[in-house]
C-alpha cells in the first residue's frame, strides 16, 4: 500500500519534472491517433452511406420528351400498385430544374442556355428492401425499358463497385493503421527513453538500494497510461476540430444530397481509440524501461 503511494507520487513528480518530454510523448500519441481517427471517420461514413444505399434502393426512370402528361401519371399510378415498389414520385422538368438550382446555384446560366426542357421529367422509385437483391433490381429495371423511358438509372452496379472500393480501403486502412501504430510505438518509446535516460542516475540508485523491477517500472507505466489517455483526448479534440472545420465545410460545398449527414465518430470508435492510445503509451513505456533495466548494474 505504501509502495503504491510512493509509486504514484513518483509518477506524478516525474510527469511534472519532465514536462516538455511528457508533452512530446503525449503529442506523438495524439498525432498517431488523430491519423487513425481520420481514417476511421472516413471509413465509418462510407460504410454508413453504403448501408443507406443498400436499404433504400432507388431507381430513376427518365421519360422521353414526347410522352404526354396523362401517360406519365398513368405509369406513376401503375407502378404505385406494384408490391415491390415502396414509393413512387413524379418529378417534372420544372421540379428537376428547381432541385438542381437549389443545390448548385451557379448552374442557372447553363440551364437558361439549354432551355426549359434541359432536364427530363422522371419517376423516382424506391423499392421495398426485401425486393432489393441485385438480380431483382436488374429485372425490374429491364422491365421498365421501353418506349416511355429514355434512361433507367439505378446505382446498384455502382454500389457494388463502391463496396469493392470500400473493401480495398479497409485493407489499406488496416495496413496504414498498423504502420502508424508501430511508428508511433517506436516514436513514443524513444521519447520515453529520453525521460528514462534523464532519470538514469535515480533509477540506477534505486536498483542499487534494492528496488524491484516492478517498483522501478510501475511509475513509467502510469506515465505511459497518462500519455496514452491525454494523447487520446488530444486526438479526439483534433478529430472534432477536423470534423467541424473541414468536413462540414466540404459537405456544404458538395451539397448534392448523396452523402447525407457526415457523422462524427460514434462512442464505440472513440472508446476503441482511447483503449489503443492507452495500450500504446503503456507498451512504449514498458519497452523503454525494460531496455534500461537490462543495461543497468
Amino acid at each position: 500500500m505504501h509502495s503504491l503511494r510512493h509509486i504514484v507520487r513518483r509518477a506524478i513528480r516525474s510527469l511534472w519534472e519532465h514536462l516538455y518530454l511528457n508533452v512530446m510523448a503525449t503529442l506523438v500519441i495524439g498525432a498517431a491517433l488523430l491519423l487513425i481517427g481520420v481514417y476511421l471517420t472516413v471509413q465509418y461514413n462510407l460504410n454508413a452511406i453504403v448501408d443507406s444505399w443498400d436499404r433504400d434502393v432507388h431507381l430513376s426512370a427518365y421519360f422521353h420528351e414526347d410522352v404526354g402528361l396523362e401517360r406519365r401519371f398513368a405509369l406513376r399510378d401503375q407502378f404505385a400498385q406494384r408490391r415491390e415498389v415502396a414509393t413512387v414520385r413524379y418529378v417534372s422538368e420544372a421540379d428537376a430544374r428547381a432541385w438542381l438550382m437549389e443545390r448548385v446555384p451557379d448552374i442557372e446560366p447553363v440551364l437558361v442556355e439549354l432551355g426549359d426542357n434541359a432536364l427530363p421529367a422522371s419517376l423516382e422509385l424506391t423499392l421495398v428492401s426485401t425486393e432489393a437483391s441485385p438480380e431483382a433490381i436488374a429485372a425490374f429495371a429491364a422491365e421498365l425499358q421501353g418506349p416511355d423511358f429514355e434512361t433507367i438509372d439505378y446505382g446498384q452496379e455502382w454500389v457494388e463497385r463502391f463496396n469493392t472500393f470500400l473493401s480495398l480501403l479497409q485493407l489499406l486502412g488496416a495496413v496504414l493503421g498498423s504502420l502508424i501504430g508501430v511508428a508511433a510505438l517506436f516514436l513514443v518509446a524513444n521519447t520515453v527513453h529520453l525521460i528514462v535516460y534523464n532519470r538514469r542516475a535515480e533509477l540506477e540508485v534505486q536498483k542499487l538500494v534494492g528496488a524491484t523491477a516492478t517498483y522501478i517500472t510501475a511509475p513509467f507505466l502510469i506515465e505511459g497510461a497518462t500519455h496514452g489517455l491525454l494523447g487520446s483526448v488530444v486526438a479526439a479534440l483534433g478529430l472534432w476540430a477536423v470534423h467541424r472545420g473541414l468536413v462540414v465545410r466540404l459537405q456544404e460545398a458538395l451539397q448534392l444530397g448523396l452523402a447525407g449527414e457526415l457523422s462524427f465518430l460514434p462512442a464505440s470508435y472513440l472508446l476503441m481509440l482511447f483503449v489503443f492510445g492507452l495500450t500504446l503509451g503503456v507498451v512504449a513505456s514498458a519497452m523503454s524501461v525494460r531496455r534500461f533495466l537490462v543495461q543497468a548494474p
Binding site: H2, H6, V209, G210, T212, Y215
Partner: peptide
C-alpha cells in the same frame, strides 16, 4: 530515505 522507500516503508 530512498532505500526505505523502495521497500514500502511508511512515510
Amino acid at each position: 530515505g530512498l532505500a526505505l522507500e523502495v521497500i514500502g516503508t511508511p512515510r
